[in-house]
Amino acid sequence: MLRLVLIAGMSLLTVISAIAQLTKFYTIKDSPEFDTVDFYLKATATNCLLKTLEADNNPLTIYGNPDLEKINPSFASKVINRTCYSKLKLDEYSSSGFGDSFTMAVSRSDKDNDFWKVNLNESKIYKLNLIYGFGNADVNLTGSSVQRVKIKSGSADIVVGYDKDNMNPIKMDTFYVKADFGSIVARSMELSRAENVITKIGFGNVLLDFDDVLAEKCNVNASVGAGNLEILLPKTGTPVIIHIKDSPLCAVKIADGFEEVEKNVFVNMDYEADAENLLSFDVDVALGMVRFKYTD
């Protein structure tokens, strides 16, 4: 199912580009007063595309074609200590917020006609906090300098990641994803240069795809409730250690070639404790499924 989400998310690019005209709603003009953009997005029920656009000289440009009888967009920004804090809210008039994910799940409505496109550029550093209720989102981080990204899905299907051979120009301190009921596919994770990856799953599904050899250390901390976590690893070249905290009600599957060096601690053939590109996992699973597989 997660691979179907990947295909669906990638097709969102085509769908949005096929729309007759997106209206420019909000813009942050470039200024020497700030070098970092801290962008917060909360979308109750829309389809969203975020990507870097080289032709856009503005650090943030937002387009959309919402049904304004149902969606109430609002935007604000301010500069503090060389950071531009920007907040976009795409709330339904009838929405009471994200406090009760179960209520959102049973009250889903069709939002196929609501599209938003957020353009970043290459000149600033970005901190992203993206919250999606329903719909689809494609978060393409290629070309932008992302210091931190946090993505939360109520019941949305989200694809986030990088195009092949396009690494984050700067180190990322934290890559955070949370899936309550929705699905999140994080592709080409090795290109994020994230020092820390945090994954929290309620009843949803998350795929972390490390599809090539890492160049730097990365620590992955995952908590799985009743959902599913799938992790894709390169078969050779990346030293990996996995620590599992499980329960009798969960299922854990480790890829072939790993050795259990002590109870619930697994290492692969490339493992070295002091390796410069060590990929380490701490996974706590209660009722769900965790699966480690190879990319090929």
Rank of each mutant, 00 (worst) to 15 (best):
D112K: 14
D114L: 04
D114F: 02
D114K: 02
W116Q: 04
K117I: 05
K117V: 08
K117Y: 07
V118M: 08
V118T: 12
V118N: 08
V118L: 14
N119P: 03
L120H: 06
N121P: 08
E122H: 12
E122T: 12
S123P: 00
K124E: 02
K124H: 11
I125C: 01
I125N: 05
Y126F: 14
Y126D: 07
Y126H: 09
K127P: 00
L128P: 08
N129I: 04
N129R: 03
L130E: 08
L130F: 11
L130C: 10
I131A: 10
I131Q: 12
Y132F: 15
G133C: 09
G135I: 06
N136F: 06
N136H: 03
D138H: 04
V139N: 06
N140F: 00
L141R: 01
L141K: 03
V146T: 11
R148S: 14
V149R: 02
K150Y: 11
K150M: 10
I151T: 13
K152I: 10
K152D: 12
S153P: 00
G154T: 15
A156Q: 00
D157T: 00
I158P: 01
I158A: 04
V159F: 01
V159M: 06
V160Y: 00
G161D: 07
Y162R: 06
D163G: 14
D163Q: 13
K164G: 07
K164R: 13
D165S: 14
D165H: 08
D165N: 13
D165K: 10
D165C: 08
N166T: 06
M167I: 09
M167V: 13
N168H: 09
P169T: 05
P169L: 11
P169H: 07
I170E: 10
K171W: 09
K171Q: 13
K171E: 15
M172Q: 13
D173M: 07
D173G: 04
T174G: 07
F175V: 13
Y176R: 13
V177S: 09
V177D: 05
K178V: 02
K178L: 12
K178N: 14
D180V: 04
D180G: 07
G182Q: 07
I184C: 00
A186L: 07
R187V: 00
S188H: 15
M189R: 04
M189D: 09
E190Y: 10
E190T: 06
E190H: 09
E190W: 03
E190P: 01
S192F: 03
S192R: 05
R193A: 04
A194S: 15
A194V: 10
E195S: 14
V197M: 09
V197N: 04
I198Y: 12
T199R: 09
K200L: 09
K200D: 15
K200T: 15
K200F: 04
I201L: 09
I201R: 10
G202M: 08
F203E: 11
G204R: 05
N205M: 04
N205Q: 10
V206L: 02
V206T: 07
L207V: 01
L207R: 06
L208E: 11
D209R: 02
